[in-house]
Nucleic acid binder design. Structure first.
Lengths: 207, 207
DNA sequence: GTTCCAAAAGTGGTCAGACCAAAAACTTCC
DNA sequence: GGAAGTTTTTGGTCTGACCACTTTTGGAAC
């Protein structure tokens, strides 16, 4: 295979080809992709180059390989990746602060978005909250992120959450009452109240 | 190399070894790591396996390789993570709307963050804006994102911007005056004014 | 026809060796 | 001491060879 740009590496080219191949054929999570040997033949590249591309995607959690069976597309829930970045990269203090800061921002965005999207839908987050005694912080915001009905934001939040875990380890679980005010504010679709309730919550949980 | 756990792959083992090697030797961004051949010898593995590990780390943006020179550690601030997720996941129509929506959110966040970070610094964005006649929208927010002093947010914005371009193609360039009010609001550190100025701008530019 | 089992084929996992291209290190010569 | 040429090092890629495991296949026995 001759890389399109001189200077580009073959395995990068293969990653791109794979992407468009997946798009073109409409492959979904769980589907099988061609074997390494077939790819190497179809893309006119050495098998080792194909493997470099596949291994990279595997480490990213985008595909899964099973010896003797084949290579399959995975439902990307970037677990390994995050773990790796966590232990590998985020050593410096500034980066950690950035993560925490960004997470707070995104959570606030999710809250406001969720309020907007739920407008007139009659959904009551408060009831959901009150149905439990203790509430895992992540679980609450997972719910909110879903309500925000924006897959991208949802994914970004998840990634930040995972990042954070790989740093602090500890998972926060608080009494459900702490979330009631926030849920009420969201149900009431009151922007100011959402803001202050969230700030209050984060103070409580000593973020 | 015999993987510690049976079932674990050699290249994964090598990634781990590299990690501990970097930690042990206290290697920092910019430092050089041993050559592929030396690693393959020291770790008692084939060179192709070493390459699979290195290529994966490279795609993650953790290392950088230069032909004829060697392989070097990169600082985290180049993470491809979101990028990859972006190109891989964002395909359908809904996702496009999500991108636009998210971009607006992030821009607002950047503005507020920037205001906070500039507090008391005496920086005047207004002067910078007025120094030009026409202003590329992206350039303005690039500036704001930098002022926000949060690399992660900055990266996320850039990715959203790039993705947006790949959809709309057109780049927006507006008269500098449009940005003056927003710059003033930012300089004045007035949250409400920032919000309304940004909303007004996005209405003007028909986002 | 059905069931069961062994052989064959397919697939990922790994290694060794070869060659190329680019950069760096070294030598030679002025 | 500096410039030019040669050798060495290093990443980039391909090929072919095994191994281990899974699926498929093709009979053989019932």
């Amino acid at each position: 295979m001759i890389p399109s740009d001189r200077g580009t590496k073959v395995y990068i080219e293969i990653v791109k080809q794979l992407r468009s191949m997946i798009e073109k054929d409409g492959l979904k999570a769980g589907d099988k992709i061609p074997s390494e040997r077939e790819l190497s033949e179809r893309l006119n590249a050495g098998r080792s180059s194909v493997r470099e591309a596949l291994r990279a995607l595997e480490l990213l959690g985008l595909i899964e390989t099973r010896r003797g069976e084949g290579t399959f597309i995975r439902d990307f829930h970037g677990n390994q990746l995050v773990q790796l970045l966590g232990t590998f990269v985020l050593q410096d203090e500034k980066a950690r602060k950035d993560v925490a800061e960004t997470k707070v921002l995104i959570e606030m965005n999710c809250l406001l978005l969720a309020a907007k999207k739920c407008r007139g839908k009659g959904f009551r987050l408060k009831e959901w909250v009150q149905a439990q005694r203790m509430l895992e912080d992540d679980r609450f915001f997972q719910k909110v992120a879903e309500l925000a009905d924006n897959y991208l934001v949802c994914r970004i939040w998840q990634i930040l959450k995972d990042y954070n875990h790989s740093l602090h380890v500890k998972k926060s679980i608080f009494p459900a009452e702490w979330y009631v005010r926030l849920a009420e504010a969201l149900d009431a679709d009151s922007e100011d109240e959402i803001r202050s309730a969230y700030d209050a919550l984060r103070k409580l949980s000593e973020y």
